[in-house]
Design a protein around this nucleic acid. Sequence first.
DNA 1: CTATCTTATGGTCATATTGACCAAAAGTAG
DNA 2: CTACTTTTGGTCAATATGACCATAAGATAG
Lengths: 227, 227
Amino acid sequence: MSKNKLVKSVTIDCVIFGFYERRLQLLLVKHADGIGQGRWGLPGGWILQDEDLDQAAYRILSDLTGIENIYLEQLRAFGGVDRFPVSRVITIAYFALVNPSEYQLIPGFTASEVEWFPVDERPELLYDHQEIVLNALDFLKDKVRREPIGFNLLPEEFTLLDLQHLYEEVLQHELDKSNFRRKIKKMGLLRKSGKKQTDVPHRAANLYAFDETMYRRLVEKGFNFEI
Amino acid sequence: MSKNKLVKSVTIDCVIFGFYERRLQLLLVKHADGIGQGRWGLPGGWILQDEDLDQAAYRILSDLTGIENIYLEQLRAFGGVDRFPVSRVITIAYFALVNPSEYQLIPGFTASEVEWFPVDERPELLYDHQEIVLNALDFLKDKVRREPIGFNLLPEEFTLLDLQHLYEEVLQHELDKSNFRRKIKKMGLLRKSGKKQTDVPHRAANLYAFDETMYRRLVEKGFNFEI
DNA sequence: CTATCTTATGGTCATATTGACCAAAAGTAG
DNA sequence: CTACTTTTGGTCAATATGACCATAAGATAG
């Protein structure tokens, strides 16, 4: 087999979701140069010889957007023959959930702009990034019901209704308020902060925080998160 | 950035599970040449320029083992810097479940032998294939509970106890026979074949088949498989 | 033919979970 | 005070689950 018939390069692309104003948001960058100049796409870049996949993903995300110290998870590889117009490139997609208010966006490297877009108002995307985003959305829908990752999208403290709105937005259907809080509270994963909402024109709700330690303890005992 | 610092090659590795004699089995090949000569590993090979990932996986599996026409699904990419001793290679792992009795194993290409091993008696594996297999086992455990893929491991017709044994082996814990059959039967995914077991030294059980059409119809209506 | 053994098949029952509601309490704004 | 909004918790019937128990259907041994 001649060497020049093999696949030669691999990139990383990151699908980063956020949540505010009750809507799911997607982080995009505008390419500063190259073939996609001036167009929006997922933050991505080449993998170097001496870094493993996770390292590459963290580096690229940080370089392009300024976002650091989050939990990135591999989604899957995309390798359609013509997905990249210049040459054959396979990309490995990564996935993360963040609370946008905790991060300042700093475009850098090959990105001239970085911006959050409501997922359902995203611009047209480069290459096969549309397909990757759709894939990530499916992944998110499944995952958010089986693991307590939704909390990553919210601030440290939130009301039960905030949480419900998040689930309604991700799952794309309404939930019964009473039943939702009964279920969440019975799990025992939330710690009352003692504080209450402020500046609301009605009775203020209690603020809760996700109790990671408790979650780990429950998982040890066989607990299975499910909504 | 100089071109020669980028990742240069990508392979596919297939984790194929089977089931017989109440045990989960793993398909391995013995390398005929190269750096891993004489050692066991997952069926794998290089991805070519003009084939997409799924195509590459089917080609490689067929070339090495003779297995064709099965449902392969991508697991994830593995890209540790030193996972391959000669050069930097990223591999994309694929995953499938088959009924071993339906396939004749034909070693070919870079494989001198192909063989089923009980998963818990597998030999030492090449490179990071041990890690990939462990990953696939976790994936299988999750997936088998949420999608009716277990049937792929069984013959066309099987008894409810066969199915129970399969779940017990994959999930690594005992199930209550009565409750198991109540649950499975209530789902309505099984079609009675009308036939019964033969050559058993006790009352013969009914043989059932998975009803794919019914499954699709139920999914349309919002049905969610779960065990 | 009868007793015995093994597995199939189906039930019981107390407990937990779910979905669809209802109702009171707390606080804001006029 | 009154009207209004949202929080918070409750009811109740229907369903699902886990731990058992009981009987039926063959097969085999004597």
